[in-house]
Structure formats: C-alpha cells, structure tokens
Design a protein around this nucleic acid. Structure first.
Length: 410
DNA sequence: CTGTCTCCTCATTC
DNA sequence: AGAATGAGGAGAC
C-alpha cells in the first residue's frame, strides 16, 4: 500500500464574511461535486495534488492543506506560465490557489445590491441565500461533471464523480481513513474499456459521452485547448464599463459554440462549463429548474416561448443578461439555489437562537460558568413569514461549561 | 429530476 | 414543383 510522507499545514485564516462567501450553500448548490463534509462545518477536497480543507465563522475563512512532501512539485514546468506569482512559502501558494478557486475578487455584497436594485424578485429571494459565489473550477472537471448532470440530481452526480476519481484519478491522501483522489485527466479516460467500465459503475448513457469527449479533448484537440476558451479579462467592477453585447461577449459565444461540438454537450451543459469552468459570468444555464423560475417570476411560458426550445433557451438567457448585466450567471445561481429542494428548510423554518450565560454556585463556594444555547425552530405557513405561536422544535445544543473559573466569593 | 441525441414531421424557401 | 433547410416534438439513453 502506498504511504507518503505528508505535510500538514496549520490552520490559517482569511477575512471573508458570510455575505461574501457561504461555504455551506456554495459547495452544495450543484456547481461542484467533489467537496466532502467530514466533520461539522469542515469541507475537504483534493485539488492540485493536495487535500484542501475549509471551514468558516462569521468573520473568517479558515483553511489548511495536506500534501505529500515528495510528489507533486510546486510548479510543474509543463503548466507554468510566465505570469504565475512566485510564492515564497507553501502557505502563500495555498492562499493564492484558494483566492483563485473560490473566485474571491468580485465584491459579492455589492453585486447583490445591484441585482436587488433592478429586480424586485431577486430582492425578495436573495436574503436567505447570501454568499452564493461562482467557483473557478478546472474546466475539464466542470465539463465532465456537467455531462453527468443530465437527467440527474446532485447527490447522484456527486456519487458518480466520486467513483470516477476513485477508479481513474490519482490518490492524493487520506483524512480519517477517507481517501481523496484528484480528478482524472482526459488522457486517463481514453482507454478502450472506459465506456463499458463506466456503464458498470452506473453512468448509464453518460458513459459513452464521457469516453468520447475524453478522446476528443485528449487526441483531436491541441494541448491546452480548453484553457484557450477561458475568459482572460481581469475582473472589473468599475461602474462605467462598456455595456454587455446582446448574447454576451465574443469570447463567451465562441467558447459556447466550441463546446457544443463535444459529445453529450448541449446548450445547458456548455453554459455550465462557460460559467463555472471558463470564467464567463454572463453564461446563464437554463435547465428545467431555471425554466420554471422564468415562467413563474419573469413572465415566460406564454405566446412565443411556450416551451423550452433552442429559441426560448436563448431568449431566457438574453433576458437575464439584460436584467442583471455582466455577471448574470452569478445572479442566476442565487435564484437557482433558492429553489433547490436541499435548501427548502430555509424557506419554511424560522430559527431563533438564544445564548444565556449561566452561573452556578457550587457547594465548595466556587462559581461554575456555563453557556446555554437554546434554538427554537418555528414552522412557517408561507414564504412571507407568519410564524406559529409555539416553536415546532426546541433544541438545547450545548450545555458544556466554557470554563470553570475559581472565584473567591465575598 | 440541474439534458442530449436521433429521428421524424411539417413549414418555409428558392 | 420539389429538394434543401430548419424549427419543433417524441422517445431513447
């Protein structure tokens, strides 16, 4: 069995508010499929040859990495680009990787304010879904993940992607006996037995799509082809920038068109890859969910655009781009998350939290201080928020004594 | 329950 | 007129 020397860095932190990034929503809303919640509030994933772990409190994002000391050189010569920042320490390199992957540059709070200003529906639904940030995932990983997403749900997609990594991806390390594998390269999915193997693993008709797409990317396209479709513009949030062209920027349209050539990639999957893997903020993936939102809240589904045809698909995207602007795909993901069944408890539950300091005088004349956390859940009748008189559920979360201070009394 | 592909019909075009 | 083209729908995967 392979055992590597591992280097575990200490936890470090970045000042990031929950409004700028909510891990729980962002990592579960169906844009990435590999993050594992091992302990409460702690997420881990194998990225760039290391295991990255994240957790957060109301003011900071905490992170650490675990990686082999011998394998995975810091900057593989093949992928090095002239503009790569030379990091003097591993911690700085991990921080740079985090800032890039979590896409921390855009001011999400400011964007929410802008979208709320122009769209009353967004303003109504967004408050319970703050901190939904679009990740900058690896384009190849995003492509395969979203090929798996057709006719599928988030839990099953995650199982499929996990299986793909387990059988075809490199082992990076373990946390508590839990193995972490990196995402397999296109080359590693080009073997003759891949399609039938993936069928045995439960991929269904997507097995053929993945095998054929892997072959096209690995053999027919030039090295680094996917990356050439990336948005290279630095993020710009100045108030006066040139207006977004109808249908999106030229680079986005070209990327979308190129992706459509691949097997198993239609307009929706192509938009997912454009938005979450290639950095095109105006890409608006319209799935059945978004189509229902467009009909319910944005007057689609009547006259022309009665069903979700190609023409309707483009019209919905154009409408949202015109309404929300250059990062329309980001706003779209907020409403998408707000409609996910996995998050529906936020719409039907009101949570009150009381924290009481309790002081208990003990027999030996010392005082024991304890923190008592009481949570009350109220069932709501509707989204607007009329609560029941009585809490549906009361939980006493912790009665652990914070510290037992010894004090002289009197 | 976060689509895509193929094949088919039917309307439009020249 | 009749082939070419393309949108739209149904069913398979």
């Amino acid at each position: 069995m392979y055992m590597a020397n591992l280097r575990i860095t200490e936890w470090r932190k970045l000042p990031v508010s929950l409004a700028e990034l909510c891990l729980d929503t962002t990592l579960r809303c169906g844009q990435s499929f590999r993050w594992k919640k091992l302990r409460d509030n702690e997420w881990s994933c194998a990225l760039h040859g290391r295991i990255l772990s994240l957790k957060q409190d109301s003011t900071h994002l905490h992170y650490r990495s675990i990686r082999p000391t011998t394998t995975y050189p810091l900057s593989p010569p093949s992928s090095a680009t002239p503009s790569v920042v030379d990091c003097s320490s591993e911690d700085e390199e991990t921080e740079a990787l985090l800032r890039h992957y979590l896409n921390l540059a855009p001011d999400l709070t400011g964007l929410y304010e802008q979208w709320s200003k122009v769209d009353s529906n967004f303003k109504k639904r967004a408050p319970k879904f703050t901190g939904v940030r679009i990740l900058k995932q690896d384009a190849w990983e995003a492509l395969v993940g979203f090929i798996c997403s057709s006719n599928n749900n988030i839990v099953r997609i995650s199982q499929m992607v996990n299986n793909l990594c387990l059988h075809y991806g490199p082992l990076v390390g373990h946390i508590d006996d839990q193995a972490f594998h990196g995402f397999p390269s296109p080359e590693s999915l080009t073997g003759p037995g891949v399609e039938s193997h993936l069928r045995e693993l439960g991929f269904g008709y997507r097995a053929g799509y993945i095998a054929r797409t892997a072959s096209i990317v690995a053999k027919e396209k030039p090295e680094g082809w996917l990356q050439t479709l990336c948005n290279e513009e630095p993020y710009d949030d100045s108030p006066d920038q040139k207006p977004l062209p109808e249908g999106g920027r030229e680079g986005y349209r070209r990327a979308h068109e190129e992706l459509l050539q691949l097997q198993g990639v239609g307009p929706k999957v192509a938009d997912c890859v454009c938005l979450m893997g290639l950095g095109w903020g105006e890409a608006v993936p319209v799935d059945t969910h978004v189509w229902q939102i467009a009909q319910r809240d944005y007057k689609f589904g009547k006259g022309k655009h009665k069903s979700l045809t190609k023409a309707t698909y483009d019209a919905v995207g154009d409408h949202f781009r015109q309404l929300w602007g250059k990062e329309a795909g980001w706003a779209h993901s907020v409403l998408f998350a707000a409609d996910l069944k996995a998050f529906s408890e936020r719409l039907t539950t009101k949570l009150e939290v009381d924290v009481d300091e309790v002081k208990i005088k003990q027999e030996d004349e010392t005082i024991l201080e304890a923190k008592l956390v009481v949570k009350r859940e109220y069932a709501l009748h509707d989204v607007k928020g009329e609560s029941e008189e009585q809490p549906a559920k009361v939980m006493v979360e912790s009665t652990r004594s914070q510290r037992a201070k010894r004090r002289r009394v009197g």
